[in-house]
Nucleic acid binder design. Structure first.
Lengths: 258, 258
DNA sequence: TGACGTCACTCGTGCTTACGAGTTGAGAGT
DNA sequence: ACTCTCAACTCGTAAGCACGAGTGACGTCA
């Protein structure tokens, strides 16, 4: 029946066949793939070969394999949650897009040190002391989770007394900095990578799915970095959105009532 | 010597041991892991078990396995290329951040149809005819590649004669739209996912590494979507950057000399 | 001294066998 | 008619064996 004639290793050929079947709609999303025994028969290969092919498809995120039941075609991971990171100059604020999200646990405040990554972004050496405020957030509607961290240099914390309160929300931080007389600008860098094991657990990330990381640096006068905010979410469930909205003023008035 | 006592399957235990070794610096980035035979001896397991453990680490993106040489610890994939997607209101332009990138091949222009993803973004039904302009770009400095696609509804193409020229650069498109009298606003959504096989090949993406996808919608008056631009890059090599720079005017003057 | 070939070592692939464990449904027993 | 048990299905794990193929070092020969 279905002997195969494709380039590469046997298990690659089997994997390619199944992949084609998925792409062609033969196995629509949610469908149950033939069992390993059936695939053995169909392609005339041994079980380890079938397993290797199936394992490859799983590592590509195409299927979910359930013990005792079978392999199911994953639906195309369309991010269902959009986090609006729109930058607005109204009153020099920035919306994290996480204001409505609930805190799964109370925030954790620790004294830590800058890493090779966070140090340069903040204009500090690697290993300098900083405050770390960690939050685990959840979207009330969908339950989608996000890890949120603020990295606060000691110099910044000393300047703004509101920062002594660990319960201060990310959005409030910028208001506090503005109130302290800082004229803020922002830069955000977005990257993606595979999650670390603890991140996978905390964010409930399916196998072979990446995380989106957004690092947000608020800069004061003289291009001095004041605070770093980093957000981590499951890329299979969330996307980030950027836009210009509303009237944008050149000078950016700083409100005193924030 | 090093019999193992960890939860889970044997190969998981072996994988966890090696993972710890990598995290602890026993195997620094670039280092050669012990050969499969040595790992068999060290953990007193069979070769298939060792191979499965090694394969797991590879699928996690922790190591690279080279036939005939061994397994090497991957260095932490820090994105080395930053694409500046900064939104500027000077003259109603938007920089793709790809202006300096070279075209690997001539652009491809095809007539296609909106998909379930692109349709709604453009305010069209799924399956409506559109022009697709595909580019494969490369950063001249690092060789990093990017796939770039413009999805142009027929209505937009009919309105702007410059769009008949397939060689028009993405940045020029916005200038042309502005010249045609459109008052543009933008929204960009960023997501990440695992690459499709052809995308992996075109972008030279290492195993178990995701792609960053940025979809950029230009909207004219009455919130009418005019054009969709999508960029795809290797997340292990690139990151996206967003900021507000320069003076921002409320009305956004449209230049006539673009 | 140089070029070449061999050989040892590496991982890549494939088959067979065996058993454990989760899931489901059919059938026997009540 | 209902419930419970068990058999038959599923995938998960592990071992052993065999051979192919890429790489590099070493020794031999010209």
């Amino acid at each position: 029946m279905g002997e195969i004639q494709r380039p590469g290793a046997l298990y690659q050929q089997v994997a390619a066949e199944i992949r084609s079947g998925i792409a062609a709609g033969e196995y629509p999303p949610g469908a149950l793939l033939p069992s390993e025994a059936q695939l053995m028969e169909r392609y005339q290969v041994s079980r380890p070969t079938v397993r290797k092919a199936v394992d490859r498809l799983r590592s590509e995120g195409l299927i979910d394999v359930v013990h005792g039941k079978g392999s199911f075609v994953r639906s195309i991971p369309t991010p269902s949650v959009t986090i609006d990171r729109t930058i607005t100059r109204e009153g020099d604020t920035f919306r994290t897009g996480l204001s409505d999200w609930a805190e799964v646990e109370p925030p954790t405040v620790t004294r830590g040190h800058t890493t090779a990554t966070t140090g340069p972004l903040l204009g500090l050496e690697e290993g300098e002391a900083v405050f770390l405020v960690d939050r685990l957030l959840a979207d009330p509607t969908t339950g989608t989770r996000a890890m949120h961290r603020m990295v606060i240099p000691l110099a910044t914390a000393a300047e703004v007394e509101e920062l002594e309160n660990p319960d201060i929300s990310p959005d409030q931080v910028y208001a506090a900095l503005a109130k302290a007389g800082h004229h803020l600008t922002w830069r955000e860098t977005v990257s993606a990578r595979m999650p670390l094991p603890d991140e996978r657990a905390a964010l409930d990330i399916p196998e072979a799915m990446p995380v989106l990381s957004a690092a947000h640096i608020a800069t004061g006068d003289n291009d001095r970095p004041l605070i770093l905010e980093r957000m981590l979410t499951s890329a299979s469930r969330t996307q980030l959105s950027y836009a210009i909205t509303g009237p944008l003023s050149t000078s950016g008035a700083v409100p005193n009532d924030a």
